[in-house]
Design a protein around this nucleic acid. Structure first.
Lengths: 337, 337
DNA sequence: CTGAAAGCGCTAACAC
DNA sequence: GTGTTAGCGCTTTCAG
């Protein structure tokens, strides 16, 4: 009557084929020792029966899940999407799968998420950033798998990291503006205290300005991170109102920078002639918009790829591996020249 | 010597606490019947021991994984990201987790992915689109869990669907252009044959044009889907070269439309006065750029939320549920008025 | 409210 | 190249 019958197991295939379950199991492992004909017959029978391999049982017995847990702040961000893409593609070469969670830029949520992900017994865990709640930190320190922090150089790494200095990257941008002759430079970012990478970029801006002996007080907080294009535009309007003689602005991301650019167009402020703009992240928008956007390339995809390779190296031979320091690249485009 | 000791299990906690493993198990289920004091003591002991609940074992025994498998064409697409966000947030209210895979707009890859995801024994599977390889289709038909196709109205649904007519949405845009007085209207999309939603939009364009008795031959293929902003810009240059008297263009996505817009600006073609532009997907860029972009809102996040609710309804009471037909909304902005 | 026994579906370990 | 046995860590089931 019911067409919801119990799905077949290896035992069922074994019975049909007149072999032991173990032989069926072996037939599914490419490298395992079964005669070619038995294997082919078994695989065919499996397909005919509509058998679906049960990873859960396999994982429990073999104590490996082929999962890599990954937390990112937001799924809707091209930079983090690129990192995840690099991770996923590289791990797929070894049939490992990503278990993704997003924190919504909230460390509390990150803690919750890390705990949830660890229950699935991933073989490694990748987190974004180097700051975590004490409990999250403890969970990561205690867990028995490789831990990789990304998109940052943690002050005190938990395990490994693949990242870059957000402050240093912003310094490159400030140096570029200064050597172009600008002195009155502003920063547009999110409200402090949530997005840690954004905060570090802001801190980096202040430090870089002070290193040049320049005033670092033109800081516009555009709302809760991540800053949207719209918020970038609003921030620009505010900036021009409060500090009308500003010559250049460093934006926490290309999205904010693009918003700022559109606001300049609306206000008939010439970019870059009257106002130079710099962004962060090398988003596609920056190379297509008019004028094109000066930005920082943080090599998002490479971060993912290198993280994946690092994980595979550790899992393969457990040898000590080197952390990866990425050097972000300043890309000067029309919005600042 | 080695600090890699075996992680504690429920049995370890039971031993320490002098209770049975079953009681420990119950202590971890919120609704389960254990005295409050025993539960609290057990949870504390677990925390002290650094215990991490093992979902794999739990899943195997209880035959439920709390996974929902999801395939999307690309992780780096704001529309699909919104759908996944809606899904994930809604499912999180029931502690269900998304197992995400992306197909790279390739049905072959989708088949591979579906097979891989099903091995994890998800409790439902959500796929993007209504076209699949025969084998993928068979896998989905045979599997014993709810199957939901999204972002489309499948000709022959496998299980349920939460989607809209891509052709119908484009018709709205064509009607808008026609009633604005345009007659020579073009379409910019990707190469045919890969992105099924893009192909349907193209087909819908042709049908709508013919319904108005207009010539539907101005079709620009901009490359392999998904079309980037850059490819949109290139396509626009080509369009103006080949069909200089074109009055309006329907683009397969806002990204292509934005690229087209920037090309117009570079060529000093006034938008919308000399050339009206329409996009698809209601991306953020469209409401910030100058001029703002006319587009179609397909309610990406709602698709995810409604899919999640549909899944929860089925899992909760197995009652027959209604498929969801979304009605996309035409948003007229400055690029066409 | 708590416990004992059995088993989810697979594979490690060993035997032949 | 193949089979047997046991058990991964949890929860269902039944008993009290």
């Amino acid at each position: 009557m019911s067409n919801i019958r119990k799905p077949p197991t290896m035992a069922d295939i074994a019975r049909v084929m007149g072999v032991s379950p173990m032989t069926v199991s072996r037939a599914f492992k490419a490298d395992s020792l079964v005669s070619t004909e038995t294997r082919e017959a078994i695989l065919k029978a499996a397909e005919d029966l509509g058998y679906v391999f049960d990873s859960t049982a396999s994982n429990l017995r073999s104590q490996k899940s082929d999962f890599v847990a990954v937390t990112i702040p937001s799924i809707n961000n091209a930079n983090f999407a690129d990192t995840v893409g690099g991770l996923a593609d590289t791990l797929a070469t070894r049939n490992m799968q990503i278990l993704l969670g997003y924190t919504n830029y909230d460390m509390q949520e990150e803690e919750r998420l890390i705990e949830q992900l660890l229950r699935r017994k991933p073989q490694a865990i990748v987190v974004t950033g180097g700051r975590h709640t004490p409990r999250a930190r403890r969970l990561l320190e205690t867990v028995n798998i490789p831990v990789i922090e990304t998109w940052d150089i943690p002050t005190e790494p938990i395990g490994h990291y693949v990242g870059f200095s957000n402050a240093g990257a912003v310094r490159q941008m400030v140096d570029h503006f200064v050597s172009a002759g600008h002195r009155r430079i502003a920063f547009i970012g999110g409200d402090v205290g949530r997005d840690t990478r954004g905060s570090e970029r802001r801190t980096g801006f202040i430090a870089a300005m002070e290193a040049h002996g320049l005033d670092a007080s033109r800081l516009i907080a555009a709302g809760a991170p991540p800053i949207s294009m719209r918020e970038g535009a609003n921030a620009m309007a505010r900036l021009i109102e409060i500090y009308p003689d500003t010559q250049a602005v460093v934006c926490v991301s290309d999205l904010a920078a693009y918003g700022a650019l559109t606001e300049c167009r609306r206000l008939n402020v010439a970019v870059p002639e009257r106002f130079a703009i710099g962004g962060f992240g090398n988003y596609e928008i920056g190379e297509v918009c008019v004028p094109t956007l000066t930005t920082i390339n943080a090599f998002a995809r490479e971060i993912g790829e290198k993280t994946a390779r690092l994980i595979l190296d550790i899992l393969d031979d457990g040898l000590p591996v080197e952390d990866v320091r990425i050097t972000p690249e300043l890309i000067v485009r029309d919005s600042s020249r």
